[in-house]
């Protein structure tokens, strides 16, 4: 099996300050990797570099494309990268409003992504939108409502539907359950887990919530001050952390 994504020595500087540096890993099809660390550890910077939202100061992000095989997405042409972002890649933002168009209906938010990859038949697009609303547990009669009329949890589910409707192979998620009520988080986690398994998705999830990664991620990368300090199988890193920082992180979680 070939890796879906090969990340080699990614480096991002903010002036003299390190955003992230020396980050390398392979992600295989169907694998879910969690990136954890406290605020300012560089985890979001890394995610945005990988997804092409931030320019890097070195390194490679090689994606196994459907038509051309492994290609470095950092040196891809802009239209090519944008196409990737609409087809095989998806990005779920922490704040749903960053990933949705708030002035367009729920159905339109999902349909828009289909039209961007050539969907033209209105009936098919609408049927697809309704189907996806159902999969993320939003009732069909809300299809014409704008997301601004939705609760935070619903907005997040709509954002996930909008992202997954084109059948991406790699999903980037930035704190996907952050800012939601605990009960809503559980529902979203369950939903994400089901979709990841059914669709065989690979995903990279940035979060500071260790309970979230234990349930969602196969493997873990722990970051501190822009460096990766520890990697491994999720439950091994959480049950038998090797690095001082990971030990501190794990022992700081409140038990419920």
């Amino acid at each position: 099996m070939h890796p879906l994504l090969q990340v080699n020595n990614i480096r991002k500087m903010y002036g003299a300050r390190i955003g992230c540096t020396d980050v390398s890993f392979d992600l295989f099809p169907g694998e879910v990797m969690g990136i954890v660390g406290e605020s300012g550890s560089g985890k979001s910077t890394l995610l945005n570099c990988l997804a092409g939202h931030l320019d890097t100061d070195g390194g490679e992000v090689i994606f196994d494309t459907r038509d051309r095989g492994p290609v470095d997405t950092l040196t891809m042409s802009e239209p090519e990268r944008r196409m990737l972002g609409r087809t095989d890649w998806a990005f779920v933002h922490q704040h749903a409003r960053d990933g949705l168009r708030m002035s367009v209906s729920a159905g339109g938010n999902i349909g828009e992504r289909l039209m961007a990859v050539g969907g033209r038949h209105y009936g098919d697009i609408r049927a697809s939108a309704v189907d996806w609303l159902d999969r993320v547990e939003i009732e069909e009669n809300r299809v014409d409502d704008r997301p601004s009329a939705f609760s935070g949890g619903m907005q997040q589910r709509l954002q996930i539907a909008r992202n997954l409707v084109t059948g991406p192979r790699l999903v980037f998620m930035d704190e996907p359950t952050g800012g939601l009520d605990v009960s809503v988080q559980a529902r979203l986690l369950d939903l994400l887990r089901g979709l990841v398994r059914e669709m065989g998705l690979s995903a990279i999830i940035v979060t500071h919530d260790l309970a979230v990664v234990r349930l969602l991620a196969d493997r873990l990368m722990v970051m501190k001050s822009g460096h990766v300090v520890e990697t491994g199988l999720t439950d091994q890193v959480l049950d038998d952390p090797q690095h001082a920082y990971t030990q501190l992180l794990v022992s700081s979680v409140l038990q419920v």
Binding site: G232, L233, D235, Q236, D239, D240
Partner: peptide, 9 residues
């Protein structure tokens, strides 16, 4: 047991 299952390194 945890060593065998891979929870412990």
């Amino acid at each position: 047991m945890r060593l065998i299952y891979g929870n412990y390194l």
